[in-house]
Simulated assay, not measured.
Amino acid sequence: MVEHGQALDWPRYSHGAYAQQQAKAKAARIGLWVGTFQAPWEWRAQHADNKGPAISQSLGIISRQVVQSYSCQPRRYCSQIGSCEEAQWYLHNCSWGRKLDRDGDGRACETLC
């Protein structure tokens, strides 16, 4: 998972066992490394004195992380896309995205939207 940018090497517990895989994923800008984010242990340390974040704030963080996980490589087809939001992201952000809107109405993968 670390190699594919889907998890982080947490040196406190892994003692750097996955540092090489993480460096490769970061250099390739895949998974979590497509965008920017704050490591979970850093976020928790900054918010340790709070009783917990507001639900809307948590949902906003999750939403941004999901969007950051989208990537234009490799090209995807509607059958490989899981949501209308994801299809629309590809439509507006990828060179091949317009192919997801066969009838040209601005909605990608009509079966999802």
Score class of each variant (00 low, 15 high):
78 C>Y: 15
4 H>Y: 09
109 C>F: 13
49 D>T: 13
79 S>D: 11
112 L>H: 06
108 A>N: 09
101 D>L: 03
27 A>H: 02
63 S>A: 14
27 A>W: 00
19 A>M: 08
65 Q>R: 12
93 N>V: 01
46 Q>S: 07
35 G>Y: 06
14 S>P: 07
63 S>N: 15
107 R>M: 14
61 I>P: 00
41 W>G: 04
94 C>M: 03
38 Q>M: 15
80 Q>V: 03
3 E>G: 10
11 P>D: 13
87 A>E: 02
63 S>V: 01
72 C>L: 12
62 I>C: 04
53 P>E: 14
56 S>M: 04
63 S>C: 07
24 K>V: 14
16 G>H: 04
92 H>K: 13
76 R>T: 07
72 C>Q: 12
9 D>Y: 03
33 W>D: 01
48 A>H: 08
3 E>P: 01
72 C>K: 11
4 H>D: 09
73 Q>F: 06
39 A>C: 01
20 Q>G: 01
36 T>Q: 15
33 W>G: 04
45 A>K: 10
98 R>Y: 07
42 E>L: 04
24 K>H: 14
109 C>N: 10
86 E>S: 06
80 Q>H: 11
18 Y>V: 02
80 Q>N: 08
35 G>P: 00
44 R>P: 00
51 K>F: 05
44 R>S: 13
25 A>C: 02
40 P>W: 08
31 G>S: 05
35 G>I: 10
67 V>H: 06
20 Q>A: 13
99 K>M: 01
66 V>Q: 15
9 D>F: 06
40 P>A: 04
26 K>Q: 15
106 G>N: 08
54 A>D: 14
45 A>W: 01
24 K>L: 14
72 C>H: 07
49 D>M: 09
18 Y>G: 11
32 L>T: 05
2 V>W: 03
77 Y>Q: 14
6 Q>T: 00
94 C>R: 03
29 R>E: 03
52 G>W: 09
105 D>V: 03
104 G>H: 11
86 E>G: 00
69 S>K: 12
33 W>Y: 15
105 D>K: 07
3 E>W: 04
83 S>V: 02
94 C>P: 05
59 L>Q: 15
49 D>C: 05
50 N>D: 15
85 E>L: 08
91 L>H: 06
31 G>R: 05
74 P>A: 01
64 R>C: 03
110 E>M: 13
99 K>T: 08
67 V>M: 12
101 D>N: 10
70 Y>H: 15
41 W>N: 09
27 A>I: 02
59 L>I: 03
57 Q>K: 11
2 V>I: 12
1 M>D: 15
113 C>V: 12
